[in-house]
Design a protein around this nucleic acid. Structure first.
Length: 485
RNA sequence: GGCCCCAUCGUCUAAUGGUCAGGACCUCGCCCUUUCACGGCGGUAAUAGGGGUUCGAAUCCCCUUGGGGUCACCA
């Protein structure tokens, strides 16, 4: 047999946004493909018309591209095995469903919802697992044809033969087995002419020559249905790798109710894609050594399914925050400026049009080791952009008094007559005053900090003074003296 | 409930029969320091329980317990 080149796919359904769990699945697929020089395919599983969301496909692709997980084949860019939107492949599914009917592996079912429901109720009442009772399997060819001709609505079901065992070797979980007795006669084609996930997925994975199915663990228990389908078609099966789930803090499946799950919302909050990718890569996978900071290139190099863990992983925001700061600290500040501008303007309602990049870069560098995400600059240090409107009470009580007030005024006087002062000039002026007055530097530093920023923490005082500039410094010092006495 | 998967510090994980059970986040302490951070150093903290197998078990087997997933004309 010819050795086929690795092909994997990410197959989300377009429900409006990309879930972080989905991003991790996409990432693992991407890493696997890149590592082995294979193809990464994007396929959109839009077979549920009731869940159709306008613009969801575009949004999904945009988010994937933002993250840098470029696919080799997929919607818009095309490829040799398209179309890549399942809603454009209906004829293919229909044809394959017919093939299964011909071979006896599937059958028409005309039961309506009421009957199905009634059967289930009865089964539950006598304590057995609710499953379709194969009622329509008993229909003769003629009866089926008659109903078809009469235009009766129908579905096509998989004909599962009880008494057997279906097993497969999962790349992550070793051998898994199921009895066919517990597998329902799954609907393959719905009455609206669309296939269900199970049929479309198997047909497409085969036709698109997928060699490795990497997906979430929630699919593990429906895999035997897929195996049955491959066997019914007589197709070679891909390998399967079922990833551990991403969990809430209480260890239930990561859900919207307990926090943000949309990749877009993390992006909006200012998390860097490098941090997000690095973080989710580590949720269920770990390299061979203690390394935790990975670039994408390094992930590709180090990744392997053998090192994927089996148990679910809690989505820990604290670790994400730490990672984001790690990237913030090493990132080229120039690249952050557009987002920085937007973040400040949006939150502080100021215009930064007149402000040049260099100044913003300096502010950013002062702040980046004090924040986890860029949006925190506006919260922690609005004083770079606006004079303080209130003064932290605790700091006032601790640092402000008549003597401090006099020293602050003195500093204002001396700064006022300076010509384009440097950071060092501010410091020299302040040190001169404390030396003349015979007081500790802190007696003046803290009041000055309070006067210009309104708070007690932040970057070095002289960096702040230099960045807000001479005029603003003088004005803020005088305003504080006026207001605080 | 049936079926399936899983089980090492609070969290993410390393250790594929022999380690003082390692690292990271968080947390605590100390140092640095004009503050807040950053950084440095150090500390607390785990093999779910019970049986086996073995000279030796976190590691292999069984049971129990716990958690999760799944049981649709949704994916």
């Amino acid at each position: 047999m010819i050795h086929e080149s690795p092909r994997v796919r990410f197959a989300p359904s377009p429900t409006g946004y990309l879930h972080v769990g989905g991003l991790r699945t996409a990432l693992y697929n991407y890493l696997y493909a890149k590592k082995l020089n294979g193809a990464f395919v994007l396929r959109i599983e839009d077979t549920d018309r009731t869940r159709y969301v306008e613009g969801a496909v575009e949004n999904l692709i945009a988010t994937l591209q933002w993250a840098g997980l470029d696919f080799d084949e997929g919607p818009i860019i095309g490829g040799d095995y398209g179309p890549y939107l399942q809603s454009e492949r209906l004829d293919i599914y229909k044809q394959h469903a017919q093939q299964l009917i011909a071979s006896g592996d599937a059958y028409y079912c005309f039961c309506n919802a009421e009957r199905i429901e009634k059967v289930r109720e009865e089964q539950k009442a006598i304590g057995i697992q609710p499953r379709y009772d194969k009622h329509c399997l008993a229909l003769s060819k003629e009866e089926v044809q008659q109903k078809l001709d009469a235009g009766e609505p129908y579905v096509i079901r998989l004909n599962v033969r009880p008494g057997g065992v279906v097993g497969f070797d999962d790349e992550i979980r070793e051998h898994v087995e199921f009895s066919t007795d517990v597998i329902d006669d799954q609907v393959l084609m719905k009455s609206d002419g669309f296939p269900t996930y199970h049929l479309a997925n198997v047909v497409d994975d085969h036709l698109m020559k997928i060699t490795m199915v990497i997906r979430g663990e929630e699919w593990l228990s429906s895999t035997p249905k897929h195996i049955l389908l491959y066997d019914a078609f007589g197709w070679e099966k891909p390998k399967f790798a079922h990833l551990p789930l991403l969990l809430n803090a209480d260890r239930s499946k990561l859900s919207k109710r307990q926090g943000d799950v949309a990749v877009e919302s993390y992006r909006e909050k200012g998390y860097l894609k490098e941090a997000i990718l690095n973080f989710i890569a580590l949720l269920g996978w770990h390299g061979p050594d203690d390394k935790e900071l990975y670039t994408i290139a390094e992930l590709i190099e180090a990744f392997s399914l053998e090192r994927v863990s089996k148990s679910g992983a809690v989505f820990d925001l604290q670790k994400l925050a730490w990672l984001n700061q790690e990237y913030l600290k090493t990132y080229d500040p120039k690249l952050m400026i557009p987002e920085f501008r937007t973040s400040i303007e949006k939150q502080l309602h100021v215009s930064l049009e007149e402000v040049d990049d260099e100044w913003l870069i300096d502010v950013f560098i002062q702040m980046r080791e004090r924040i986890n995400v860029i949006d925190e600059v506006a919260i922690q240090a609005p004083y770079f952009f606006l004079p303080p409107d209130v003064y932290d009470e605790k700091s006032v009580g601790k640092n402000w008094n008549t003597e401090a007030s006099r020293s602050v005024t003195e500093l204002a006087n001396r700064v006022e007559v300076m010509d384009d002062p440097s950071k060092e000039d501010y410091e020299a002026a302040l040190r001169m005053i404390v030396s003349e007055r015979g007081i500790n530097a802190g007696k003046l530093i803290h009041p000055v900090r309070l006067a210009v920023s309104g708070v007690s923490g932040g970057p070095g005082l002289f960096d702040i003074l230099y960045l807000i500039g001479k005029d603003e410094t003088v004005e803020r010092l005088r305003t504080a003296v006026e207001r605080l006495g």
